[in-house]
């Protein structure tokens, strides 16, 4: 299969994360990911989109953009928000703020597990500011090659 992109834009609201999660699950399953890995991909997408909705959006109208790139050996998901325009606010996820959240994370914490999950489950994880003043989060999941299968 040649490299191909699917682009989505969802309103910045929790309600739209669930159908998006269902979509990526169906896609990953169609691409041959194992059931366990499909669940991982769905969880990672949920956590990234949740952060984009809660920390990277002024309101529900601005939207969160997703680019899903299917390649022969990988599935890549890029989630782009436009930023909360509250760069000084406590809830804006800068690298420094994320480091602080991770340092304070414990099993007893009620919040702050999202990026830890993303980093743990994705094969590649990158986060950077985008030109719109928001955040781009890119994750990649490797696809098992037929030669890797133990028959």
């Amino acid at each position: 299969m040649e490299k191909s992109d699917i682009k989505l834009k969802i309103p910045s609201a929790d309600f739209y994360i669930e159908p998006t999660r269902a979509f990526i699950g169906n896609l990953a399953q169609s691409l041959g990911f194992s059931r366990k890995r499909v669940a991982d991909i769905q969880l990672v997408l949920d956590e990234i989109c949740s952060n984009a909705v809660h920390h990277g959006s002024v309101d529900a109208t601005v939207g969160v953009k997703l680019r899903i790139r299917i390649d022969t050996d990988s599935l890549e998901i890029l989630v782009r928000d436009t930023g909360s325009r509250q760069a000084e606010a406590k809830n804006w996820l800068t690298h420094e703020r994320l480091s602080e959240i991770e340092a304070n994370r414990s099993p007893c914490s009620e919040r702050g597990h999202g990026i830890f999950i993303v980093k743990s489950l994705a094969d590649t994880y990158e986060m950077q500011r985008n030109a719109a003043g928001g955040t781009d989060v890119r994750v990649v999941f490797g696809r098992l090659k037929p030669s890797d299968l133990k028959l």
Binding site: Q42, D46, E47, S50, E110, R111, H113, G114, I117
Partner: peptide, 16 residues
Amino acid sequence: SHINSTAVGALVGVAK
């Protein structure tokens, strides 16, 4: 069949 960290956090918080 799916739970995210927000839901787990809610359960942990109420248990505590």
